[in-house]
Amino acid sequence: MSLQMIINAILLGGLYALMGIGFSLQWGISGIINLSYGAMVVLGSYISLIIFDVFKIDPFISMLFSGFLLFLIGAFAYKFIIQPSIKGGIVFTLIITFALRLIVENLILYIWSADYRTIRISYAGRNFQFLNSFVPLTKFITFLIAGILIYFTHLFMMNTKIGKGIQAVSLDKIGALAVGVDDKKMYLINFAVGTALAGITGSLWATVYSFSPHVIDVIIGRVFIIAILGGLGNIWGAAAGGMLLGFVETCGATFLGAHWQEAIGLAMMVLILLFRPHGLMGKKFFGQ
């Protein structure tokens, strides 16, 4: 495997890692398999697009606004759409989040059509040389930001009162209630944080790839694999799952052929489910 291949894999894995965390938190902690997650990522891309078109603001800056707006959307969706449906069971929440996806998708189609869009930042496509290989500049920046955000999310969960509260309801809901933690509020914040991460991922995605509503399915397929590989509700697990998927896809394309790229990721998910159902870094008490 050449150095160029390793660089490709690391950079791809970085974006996958960030992409997977929000979905993993929502599934593992709030107990919601959020089928609208891909649509929220793509919505983040379009928010950055419109900010770029109107104000010429770089997506690496507008990602903060995408994150904030998607946080609010996530909180609203959880409070008024998802939470009331939780009593109906997992199938009901699946239907509700799928409906949410359709609403967002059709809204995007209505406003921007199905055409593929690209944010043409001036330095898109640039690279720098590292030994005998090339590192794409925007992918490198995206990787760094993804790493920083993953670390900040970890700090938020470990060091803040709300983060600890979210962990508490995830580990032992009854115990958390007994000591006065507001479980509904914690689930809501956790879901909104996950949606905010989706929005930021969307902004970052827009700096390196083209996007359209068709991308929603690509993303939802990837986040399922990442969450299961890493272990539900575990930030570092999802990050590891994302990096692993990046490597597996790159190796698959290199050694088996590009048409195996997706199949090999799915095969690995099946193997993990068979031999380590809680994921690479998942612990039994998480998300149970």
């Binding site: 050449s2 160029q4 291949m5 490709n8 894999a9 950079l11 791809l12 790839y209 083209s210 068709h214 991308v215 399915d217 690509v218 896809e249 790159t250 394309a253 290199t254 052929g257 590009a258 048409h259 790229q261 997706e262």
Partner: peptide, 20 residues
């Protein structure tokens, strides 16, 4: 002559092979 999955978003690995 190599096929890739339709809807792919990243062909860096394949294009690295082509470049070689």
């Amino acid at each position: 002559f190599e096929k890739y999955p339709p809807g792919s978003t990243d062909l860096s690995a394949l294009l690295t092979k082509v470049k070689a």
